[in-house]
Write a protein that binds this DNA or RNA. Structure first.
Lengths: 237, 237
DNA sequence: GGAAATCTTACGAGAACCTTAAATCGATCC
DNA sequence: GGATCGATTTAAGGTTCTCGTAAGATTTCC
């Protein structure tokens, strides 16, 4: 999330107070790379030289308007743009958004709102769409889907609880290797847990009841006496 | 996008210089099929013969006004229209837009602006309707249509509220995966929400009442204790 | 055989979640 | 500028299910 705040911003507005106000507020919010431009021409120059990641454009500029600037920019880039304007009429809004602006703020506005909308744009454009955050893998006939938190086998389906999910994730991340009981406890309870040893065993048992055909003779989640446990997974790396 | 520039334009204005100026500028922008009319009557004739795709109408004409012309045209067609006028009063604007004009430009104007607004109209009217913005999917017997914001089952139909829509969208975007309560709250309320945990639960319940046959024994929108919720959807990827 | 490590099962506390109703908010219409 | 209606939030009591504990059973290894 915070890497979004290291993106390069370009503010184009001919009014110094507004620019400074925005700049101050954005810096207070954690943005560091803020560039300014006062006019249409200067905006194009700065755009060339700094290659900003997002622009905040005033509609009214001394030597042209923001709409025209946007459509000029759009010929060579798809820079995300937030419009800033005193004119709040619907047509203007349509025009701006039709040209491919990403958002539109009418003056006067709350600085807070500007930041929120800006962050929304940055997230939308630059935040990598997180897919497949959790692994899905096969254990013999059964599929362990940490994505949806279930173990499946034909028609059967066993849901995993939060603790089981955390433990299985840790085990899978270290698959085919020994994971100490300490490491497992840490994964499920955090650093500062001092419960009974037995608690972990009970959870291991519960996991085995879901992933093993015969929980008492485990084939995948194996005990390593004196050390911990290991999850044997073949294939897929 | 460029095929929009092959649309037939009709310019109705009694001042030759203005017509010529617009004509020249539009041709420079790539428009090729531009027709002219000088009066109310001529406009109707040209309209009959060339069947333009969009019209730029001056409000003041020697033998009538643009508003009347528009309402005459509207009897037999829904030709998109951009008004051009020296009178910028709000009533005129309202009158024009009320009659179904698509946009309104006050003289003097930047030629650039005219083009932009014209393109905006053309895009709006002639651009192929962009495909569904929101998903429509099946949950058992019921169809969840986020495009129209309804859940249907045979004759029955349940409308979705704004919050329900936002939550269902987030859930569907992450279908078959666990979505944390935090992520759901963020989707429905934004980053800076500090309401009660319970609020989310109440909304989940409402959604279940619409998408589940037995809301108390959900089959699709499932709770994952300690983690969040998941919407189980089969098929379609 | 005996000690240590691990397994297994059952149960209850309490957290997490559900449910319903009432209060509040907000838009729309007289 | 109220009045009204639906959407949303708050509130409070109820329910369910996870998790941790305990205690006896079993396995392993010397």
């Amino acid at each position: 999330m915070d890497n979004l705040k290291s993106k390069k911003l370009l503010i184009v507005d001919d009014e110094v107070e507004i620019r400074e106000m925005i700049d101050r507020f954005l810096r207070k919010e954690g943005f560091t790379r803020i560039f300014h431009a006062t006019s249409f021409q200067e905006a194009l120059d700065v755009f060339q030289s700094v290659q900003p990641d997002v622009a905040i454009l005033d509609v009214m500029l001394p030597d042209g308007d923001g709409f025209t600037l946007l459509s000029t920019l759009r010929k060579s880039s798809d820079l995300p743009v937030l419009f800033l304007t005193a004119r709040g009429e619907d047509e203007d809004r349509l025009l701006g958004l039709g040209l491919g602006a990403d958002d539109y703020i009418v003056k006067p506005f709350l600085p807070r709102e500007l930041v929120l909308r800006l962050m929304a744009i940055l997230r939308r454009v630059y935040a990598p769409p997180q897919k497949e955050r959790y692994p899905v893998f096969q254990l013999g006939k059964r599929e362990v889907d940490l994505e949806s938190g279930t173990v499946r086998d034909h028609g059967n389906e066993w849901p995993l609880t939060a603790k089981e999910h955390a433990l299985l994730l840790k085990l899978y991340e270290n698959r085919n290797r020994i994971v100490t009981s300490d490491a497992l406890c840490q994964a499920a309870w955090g650093d500062d847990y001092f419960g009974y040893e037995n608690t972990l065993m009970v959870h291991i048992r519960r996991i085995r009841e879901k992933i093993e055909e015969n929980p008492s003779r485990p084939k995948f989640l194996l005990t390593v006496r004196g050390l911990g446990y290991k999850l044997m997974v073949r294939g897929d790396g």
